[in-house]
């Protein structure tokens, strides 16, 4: 493989990492509070507000039901408004974020709902405000689940980011399509696939490791 190709692979990998990192971060910034709110606004919960919960849930479901490749094209005007341009790697971050946020919201919601209701009761009995319960009980207790959820979201984002070539976004997927497929260079396709596999493995291991680190539920002295 030529030095030129290797450079292209490195550059594409960095572009993929850039898109995934920024959209993952922005998606979390939006998805985390929305997910927490979805969990605590259910009927009978801490900030019970069934109507708002229902509406928000519908919006999240709608966003999640649009296939990613359609989303990318459908929101081009919006992307131009936000990013100043509708094509390129940076512009691709807009649809990636919009795909990530509702997904992350649902994953966070699930993790929060797993928290034992007895802990909420104990915190209420201490005189905690709903906000204190969210910050000091729900989020810390759900952290292992949230960490695993975010890992899943990042892995999905790596997959989505391969489709942004449709709007001129670059990265590994785009390289694979343009060189590996259109110019029929199977060694490029193979290299792209291998790099993607390695990336996903790394993200998964890192995420699971972090989740284990923050998970104090299992006995640490097992097997001693």
């Amino acid at each position: 493989m030529s030095a030129n190709l290797i450079n292209m692979l490195i550059e594409a990998t960095l572009q993929t990492l850039y898109m995934v990192a920024i959209s993952g971060l922005l998606g979390t910034l939006v998805g985390l509070p929305v997910g927490v709110y979805l969990a605590v606004s259910q009927r009978g919960e801490l900030l019970s507000s069934p109507l708002v919960n229902k509406v928000l849930g519908l919006v999240v479901n709608a966003a999640r039901s649009v296939p990613f490749i359609i989303l990318v094209v459908a929101i081009i005007p919006f992307t131009r408004l936000i990013a100043g341009t509708s094509i390129g790697t940076t512009a691709a971050i807009v649809p990636l974020t919009i795909a990530a946020a509702p997904f992350i919201a649902r994953l966070v919601e699930n993790a929060i709902r797993e928290v034992d209701s007895g802990l909420i009761e104990a915190a209420r009995a201490m005189g905690a405000t709903p906000f204190q319960i969210i910050r000091k009980v729900l989020i810390p207790e759900a952290l292992p689940g949230i960490t695993l959820g975010l890992t899943l979201a990042v892995v999905s984002l790596i997959g989505y980011s391969a489709m942004v070539g449709a709007v001129g976004g670059e990265g590994l997927g785009d390289l694979g399509i343009r060189y590996g497929y259109q110019r029929f260079m199977p060694e490029v396709m193979l290299a792209v696939v291998v790099i993607l596999i390695v990336l996903v493995q790394l993200v998964q291991s890192l995420g699971e490791g972090l989740a284990r680190l923050v998970d104090k539920r299992a006995p640490r002295n097992r097997g001693r």
Binding site: D116, L119, A122, A125, M126, A128, T129, V137, E141, K216
Partner: peptide, 20 residues
């Protein structure tokens, strides 16, 4: 109510301790 709750401690059958 939150002030009153600070004057009333509570313990539970399943302890309800934060695992984190």
């Amino acid at each position: 109510l939150r002030r009153i709750r600070r004057d009333v401690g509570m313990i539970f059958q399943h302890f309800n301790l934060l695992s984190s």
